[in-house]
């Protein structure tokens, strides 16, 4: 039998040192909703499991001048109950609250969802649209990276040996901003996105003055679709702009045909969801509250 070393880290530095010492056989345990399932399925066999739930910085949410820092291991349910964060970034919070079931929400974290590096991760397109920055601790230094540059392929991150994700930072919002995340699943819950679209907008009157679009489950990594954002920016979100943005999303797709959806279907749905998510984000930016789901 394989022996597994279980370590509880008290500080971010300690966690990073343990990770480095595990020499590639270390795995971070936050909620464990991916790790334990993968271990049971025989997909991973870690030498050391490093529990980070006792590190305050990693399980807390703080606000500084309108910018929010979400500890990477903060349970999704805690994030969902943070009223101010939810008001500022309803799309991001909704996306995080779509990870797993109600029971899983008590454990699952945004940091874990990101590090699992699934192209279909629900929280990531919303975080990409939000312009979230990932804070990474190595054995010696800290660094930051935009969330869309964090993963490099299915199940692959750009973390170097001994590095761990500490937190996600959402920038301060200008007034009249709104975001939304929509995913398509064949059921109503307990499913994996066939396509996921996050949209974040800032409006000035009827004009969209800035936009970001994140697109999931249609390529090896979650995409930042700059062409779609460009089509929306400067427009009144009229039919022409929406058509152009939807087409840009469809054009950005590099999906696969698999049991969850065809290339044709995913490509089409990317455009459909862009339109719908944009409408919700715009309503929110205008102060019209709307539920995405």
């Amino acid at each position: 039998m394989t022996d597994i070393l279980y370590k509880v880290a008290k500080t971010v530095r300690e966690a990073a040192s343990l990770m480095a010492a595990a020499k590639g056989k270390g795995r971070i345990l936050a909620g464990g909703t991916d790790l334990l399932v993968q271990m049971k399925a025989g997909m991973v066999a870690p030498g050391t499991i490093i529990d980070v739930k006792k590190i305050p910085e990693m399980v807390s949410i703080t606000e500084t001048k309108g910018s929010y820092r979400i500890g990477a291991a903060t349970p999704a349910a805690v994030i969902g109950e943070h009223k101010k964060l939810k008001k500022a970034w309803p799309g991001v919070v909704e996306a995080i609250n779509l990870i797993g079931s109600t029971q899983v929400q008590g454990r699952a974290s945004a940091g874990g969802n990101l590090c699992n590096a699934s192209p279909a991760a629900d929280s990531v397109p919303a975080l990409v649209a939000a312009g979230a920055i990932v804070t990474i601790q190595g054995p010696k230094t800290r660094r930051t990276v935009p969330v869309e540059k964090f993963t490099s392929g299915p199940g692959k991150t750009t973390l170097k040996a001994g590095e761990i994700v500490v937190s996600l930072t959402l920038p301060a919002r200008p007034k009249a901003s709104g975001d939304a995340y929509l995913r398509l699943i064949p059921r109503t819950e307990m499913d994996i996105a066939v396509v996921g679209v996050g949209v974040s907008l800032t409006m000035k009157g009827d004009t969209c003055v800035s936009a970001r679009v994140g697109l999931g489950a249609v390529a090896p990594t979650v995409l930042l679709v700059e062409a779609a954002a460009k089509a929306l920016t400067g427009s009144k979100l009229d039919a022409t702009a929406l058509d152009a943005a939807a087409n840009a999303c469809s054009a950005a797709c590099r999906p696969i045909d698999d049991k969850r959806g065809t290339i044709r279907y995913r490509t089409k749905i990317a455009g459909v969801l862009l339109r719908r998510a944009t409408a919700i984000a715009a309503d929110r930016a205008r102060g019209i509250s709307k539920q995405g789901h």
Binding site: R187, E189, K259
Partner: peptide, 29 residues
């Protein structure tokens, strides 16, 4: 009627042997 089906790949192996991709309805459906 809506979602359940056995999906085989070209090698004749079942591609969806679990409740994630073999979709029985959930209560909220």
């Amino acid at each position: 009627a809506l979602n359940e089906e056995y999906i085989y790949n070209a090698q004749g192996r079942l591609a969806n042997p679990g409740f994630l991709d073999y979709r029985i309805p959930v209560a909220s459906d």
